[in-house]
Amino acid sequence: MIQILEEPIGVTYKQLISLAFNICDEFILVKRDQIILNENGKTFIDELKPYIKEIRKQEEWPGTRLFGHYADVYYFDCKDGLEEKLLTRVDRLYEWMQPELLEDLCFYKNGEEWLVTIAHENEGFIKTTERQEILKIREIEGIMIY
């Protein structure tokens, strides 16, 4: 597992998201029931509607477990049009938070967690043991690995 020590911002964020789209096949974004989206958040969901594969009511997702609350977890396939939306909507990884946007962007590869973020905690990590992926991650300036 690769712990992201500093928040990917700017070019580092863009390179990480592009790499995730190249490696992964699915990602999620979360809308918590107890946090009301503002107008920007509602507009963003409208933009994503054509790409939504599935919405599930869940009390947990990678890195988070709610007690007594649920969230709508939006599932998406990694498609080119979506990559551009994620790259242009924000400039940093932990900016994915309500009420402005959906939150906790996570990527999956073959049904397994690959990139996990817990935006409110400013935490993120990548789960991989594949040498080629680790080498590509190391090429991203600003990603600190230990």
Rank of each mutant, 00 (worst) to 15 (best):
D91R: 07
Q132V: 04
W61I: 09
N122L: 06
I52F: 06
R131M: 04
R89F: 00
W114Q: 08
E113N: 14
L82F: 02
D77T: 14
W96V: 02
D33G: 11
L48Y: 01
I134E: 09
Q15F: 09
C106M: 02
G124D: 06
Q58S: 15
E123F: 15
G41R: 05
C24N: 06
Q98C: 04
K136W: 09
K136P: 01
L101R: 14
L82R: 05
G10R: 12
L105I: 13
N22P: 02
K31P: 00
E59L: 09
E83F: 04
E7Q: 13
E100F: 07
I17N: 10
I143A: 12
E26F: 00
Y70M: 11
L115E: 14
E100A: 01
T43I: 03
E133K: 04
P50W: 04
L115M: 09
K57S: 12
D104P: 03
G124M: 00
D72K: 03
L19H: 09
E60N: 15
P8D: 06
R32M: 06
I45G: 11
E83Y: 02
Q132T: 10
E83Q: 12
H69L: 12
C24Y: 05
D72Y: 07
D77P: 10
E121C: 04
K14L: 10
K85P: 11
L66P: 03
E47L: 10
G124F: 02
L135S: 00
G68F: 06
E95S: 11
R56T: 15
L86Q: 00
W61M: 02
R56I: 15
G41Q: 05
R131A: 02
I4N: 04
T43G: 03
F44L: 09
T12W: 01
Y13D: 09
M97W: 11
F44C: 05
I140G: 05
K109N: 13
R65T: 06
G63T: 10
E141A: 14
E83K: 15
K85D: 09
I140K: 13
I28W: 13
T129C: 00
E26S: 10
I28D: 11
I23K: 12
D77F: 07
L105A: 01
L16I: 06
K57A: 07
A20I: 01
F44S: 12
R92V: 04
V30C: 03
I126F: 08
G41S: 04
R138Q: 15
K31I: 03
A20W: 03
K42L: 06
L102K: 05
I134P: 08
E123G: 13
E84I: 15
E6S: 14
N40S: 04
E26T: 13
I17F: 03
F107H: 09
I137G: 03
Q58I: 08
K85H: 05
P50S: 00
G111H: 08
